[in-house]
């Protein structure tokens, strides 16, 4: 079975070297660099050189860069990249009516799901990491220690967020192949961008909550608000659990959701008959 997964992985990677896909790859890589460059340029123009060297500015700049890079890479690039490549993993095969050729192979459906998931995840890593590296260097952080800390934090967040989002979108694609993209976008907007900021227990179910908490902890960002009280206790949008717990939950979520996708796929009926999917 490992050979079959590897075969799907290699085949899908080979197929992904098309102009449209390469263009998407470039867009995903360049977008955070472009935004970071604009912000840096704006800051250089708006703030005088003497102000830029002050401690308060440097601290604030580090926080701004960390949150901006977080929003651009572990959030946007990871979400968009995996949304585009894992959500249609099954629906594309069904629409093309190529699913049947894969499904009548020993462990075919399982190999295709896992192989396509791995392809999507490894496809998103390079633009995310390359974009991150260039964007961090472009950010103009005051010391190399800060550059290293932000880069290392974001890298770990990318390594956690891409598989997690990929697994969520894969499951959506398997559960709702006919409207996979619509439901995946709806999930992202409702759960990851709205509910993750709701100060209630439900936000702990989102990937965003975990990533945000890890960012604050790993980047050692200050959570003291203007009133002198810690933001996390007043808003509860950032978790106070230890980092290992968030990491473990994200990893378990990724593996668990891919496993669930396989189980769902094995129990579903997709046929080439006119009546098709039931």
């Amino acid at each position: 079975m490992i050979g079959s997964v590897l075969a799907v992985f290699c085949f899908e990677w080979k197929r992904s070297f098309t102009w449209p896909r390469m263009m998407w790859w470039l867009v995903l890589m360049c977008f955070p660099i472009f935004i970071m460059g604009l912000v840096r340029y704006n800051a250089l123009n708006a703030i005088s050189a003497s102000d830029r060297s002050q401690e308060a500015f440097l601290t604030g700049w580090l926080v701004l860069c960390a949150w901006l890079l977080f929003a651009l890479i572990p959030m946007l690039v990871a979400m968009l990249g995996t949304l585009l490549w894992t959500t249609p993993a099954i629906s594309a095969e069904l629409e093309r009516k190529s699913w049947i050729y894969l499904a009548v192979r020993p462990h075919g459906s399982l190999s295709v799901v896992i192989g396509k998931y791995l392809t999507a995840v490894t496809w998103v890593f390079p633009p995310a990491i390359l974009g991150l590296t260039i964007a961090v260097l472009l950010a103009g952080l005051s010391t190399w220690t800060e550059v290293g800390r932000v880069w290392w934090t974001m890298l770990r967040l990318v390594l956690l967020s891409v598989p997690a989002y990929g697994a969520i979108y894969l499951l959506i694609g398997v559960l709702l192949p006919r409207r996979a993209m619509t439901f995946a976008v709806a999930y992202t907007l409702i759960f990851e961008l709205v509910i993750s900021f709701v100060p209630a227990v439900i936000n702990k179910l989102t990937v965003q909550y975990r990533l945000r908490s890890l960012l604050v902890e790993w980047c050692e960002l200050s959570l003291i608000g203007p009133n002198g009280r810690p933001l996390s206790t007043s808003l509860t949008v950032i978790g106070t659990e230890p980092a290992w717990q968030h990491v473990l939950i994200l990893m378990a979520m990724s593996i668990g959701l891919v496993g669930l996708s396989v189980v769902v796929l094995k129990s579903r009926e997709f046929s080439s008959s006119a009546e098709s999917e039931t």
């Binding site: 075969a7 197929r15 093309r96 009516k97 190529s98 699913w99 049947i100 192979r105 020993p106 190999s111």
Partner: peptide, 24 residues
């Protein structure tokens, strides 16, 4: 199967090879 459902951008050889890899 009765339907076509082949990957148009790959060669017939690559497609058959791929399906045989899935065959084990």
């Amino acid at each position: 199967p009765g339907g076509e459902g082949m990957y148009s951008e790959v060669s017939g050889y690559d497609w058959v090879c791929y399906l045989q890899r899935l065959q084990g």
